[in-house]
């Protein structure tokens, strides 16, 4: 069977140097499900089966960062190895290893979710119907790494997409549940944000005294439920 267009794109990412000790493998210029899948799949593969000279592998929304030791490998050698791995992965990006599933209880609205009603109204929904739609299907963790333990989860269906707020809140507390751009994000530490604040969770995906300090990884599945 002929490979689909998206598979071809995944098989030929753009490889870009980030300074002299890192390489970025980028699967697209826009955030798409396919590019995100490919980035996470390649990262998981390179963590499970490391390349010589690579000292850190970290997936982003549409790319994978490889930090390397320039005394142990060269940019040319590394790009060759990465291309080989990517080609052999082909369109099989989705079938990569086990995926953990996390249940996350959210308290929607109220003082901890002051934007809930406005977000629901902008989508033509009651708050109750928005919550139901928000929790209807499992999402994937698209990326981590924005701040300690931060999670981007997506994608919601097109009917639930809202843009960011026009102003930025200087700080929202740890546990804040944020909503914008077809995604739900969860902050594990206090952060500034221009996303809508729709609720709060007891989940703290960051404990610096544990190693690793986070439990939820990019590519994991999350199921949201309304806290009792």
């Amino acid at each position: 069977m002929a490979p689909q267009a998206t598979d071809m794109a995944l098989a030929s990412p753009t490889l870009i140097p980030l300074g002299d000790s890192a390489l970025l493998v980028r699967f697209g210029n826009d955030l798409s499900e396919a590019a995100n899948f490919a980035a996470i799949a390649l990262a998981r593969r390179l963590i499970a089966d490391p390349l010589p000279g690579v000292v850190e592998v970290s997936p982003n929304l549409v790319s994978v960062l490889l930090r390397y030791d320039p005394m142990r490998t060269s940019f040319a050698e590394l790009t060759g190895e990465v291309r080989l791995r990517t080609y052999s992965m082909g369109g099989a990006a989705s079938a990569s290893g086990s995926v953990a599933r996390h249940r996350i209880a959210i308290t929607f609205g109220g003082e901890a979710g002051p934007d809930l009603d406005a977000v629901a109204a902008s989508l033509g929904l009651s708050a109750a119907d928005f919550i139901k739609a928000h929790n209807a299907v499992p999402l994937r963790v698209l990326s981590t790494g924005f701040s300690p333990g931060f999670l981007y989860c997506g994608f919601h269906p097109a009917a639930l997409v809202v843009s960011r707020r026009s102003d930025v809140r200087a700080s929202v507390p740890a546990g804040s549940v944020l909503f914008a751009a077809g995604q739900t994000a969860i902050a594990a530490t206090a952060i500034p944000t221009g996303w809508h604040l729709i609720g709060h969770t007891k989940l703290r995906n960051f404990n610096p005294h544990a190693n690793p300090p986070t439990q939820v990884r990019a590519g994991d599945e999350v199921v949201f439920e309304a806290a009792p």
Partner: peptide
């Protein structure tokens, strides 16, 4: 731009 990895010196 889609948010992406940063390295020191960027």
């Amino acid at each position: 731009l889609v948010s992406d990895a940063i390295v020191p010196g960027d």
